[in-house]
């Protein structure tokens, strides 16, 4: 039995807009998953169904033995942490430290555990020097890390990151990559929505593709990025190295620069 189960789930917003239609998905504990697809494909709705921010209008979502329809969002968020796409939808405290402390305080962790988690979260997100700053005085890209720290400090089993790569520079992207690796080592289940295909190729075991309110494919990054039909339907392109290697006839499963280098050297 999978840890997370999405069964025949549809979701319609109160205004009648159908956002996801009849999706099925199984996720094991400790998986590291990317969700890709166009704006409006249903990615954010799908992950909001996992932490109970939205309840399915048809079908069921199970996390462990919890059916999301039977628990409040507050209860679900102990297990499933969600980092909002727009940090301004999430942040509501006047300092970085109070924002990050909020979760563990609500969860009633004892003082020692709380301090450990908060310090760890600030450390891993590079925010130590900003402890006492107002999040809204920080640039958007740093503010995103404040929201990530808040979720890490809650130590939830499942962590969802909604477009963490947007607007990040080289250092930010590397930091995200390090955070994913470390959370994975801690046994967390990670789900990341991103538009950055190079980031997907470098960081994820499994990729889920959404298009037109549906999950149209699930597989390894190699399987997805070398499946032209799926990419076309989702209006996505594989990483640059995949495209170059395909046109040069260099193997049929290259998605990373390292692999491209070996394939080119083998030909010369």
């Amino acid at each position: 039995m999978s840890y997370i189960k999405i069964r025949d789930v549809s979701f319609m917003y109160p205004n009648g807009v159908l956002a996801v239609e009849n999706i099925n998905l199984d996720i094991e504990k400790g998986e590291n998953i990317a969700i890709i697809g166009q704006n409006g494909a249903g990615k954010t709705t799908t992950v909001k169904l996992l932490n109970g921010l939205l309840k399915p209008t048809k079908g069921a979502v199970m996390v462990g033995d919890m059916d999301t329809r039977e628990y409040t969002t507050a209860q679900m968020s102990r297990v499933v942490g969600y980092v909002f796409q727009n940090p301004d939808d999430q942040i509501f405290h006047p300092t970085v430290i109070s924002e990050v402390e909020f979760g563990p305080r609500i969860l009633k962790f004892d003082e020692k555990k709380k301090d450990e988690l908060v310090n760890y979260a600030l450390e891993i997100t590079g925010l130590k020097e900003y402890r006492e700053e107002n999040p809204y005085d920080l640039p958007h890209s740093i503010r995103k890390f404040v929201t990530i720290a808040s979720i890490i400090a809650m130590d939830s089993q499942v962590m969802i990151f909604d477009e963490p790569t947007a607007g990040q520079d080289l250092v930010g992207i590397q930091r995200l990559s390090d955070i994913l690796k470390e959370m994975l080592q801690k046994g967390k289940t990670l789900i990341t929505i991103t538009h950055d295909m190079e980031f997907v190729a470098e960081n994820f075991d499994r990729v889920i593709v959404m298009a037109n309110k549906k999950i149209i494919a699930s597989g390894t990054a190699k399987e997805i990025f070398w499946n032209p039909e799926v990419l076309e339907e989702a209006m996505l392109k594989p990483p640059h190295v995949s495209r170059v290697c395909r046109e040069l006839g260099l193997g049929s499963n290259i998605i990373r620069i390292d692999e491209a280098i070996e394939a080119i050297i083998a030909k010369t």
Binding site: G37, Q38, N39, Q85, E163, A166, G167, H195, M197, M235, L236, K237
Partner: peptide, 9 residues
């Protein structure tokens, strides 16, 4: 384009 998908970008 920070919030756009690859095709939109």
């Amino acid at each position: 384009t920070s919030q756009l998908d690859p095709e939109g970008t």
